[in-house]
Amino acid sequence: MRPHVDRVVDTSGTYCPVPIIETAKAAREEGPGKTLLVIATDPGIEADLPVWCQGTKNELLGIEREGGRYLCYVRLVAKP
């Protein structure tokens, strides 16, 4: 089952590190407890998002591939 999403961050068409910049911005605005759905088309997201989550201590719930898109679920744990 897909998690409940509080905010969608659609970064389709942009290249890394833009998806991470957008994710970080949304995380700062939303704050802990919320869940982000980050949509990306740059395959770099599969490598970058896990390490970003590790560094920021947020929780990566999973990455799903849907055609050429990556649907990434991030639960915000850290303080903004």
Partner: peptide
């Protein structure tokens, strides 16, 4: 990305 990996 190396900088992100270092952060991790």
């Amino acid at each position: 990305n190396e900088a992100l990996a270092a952060g991790a």
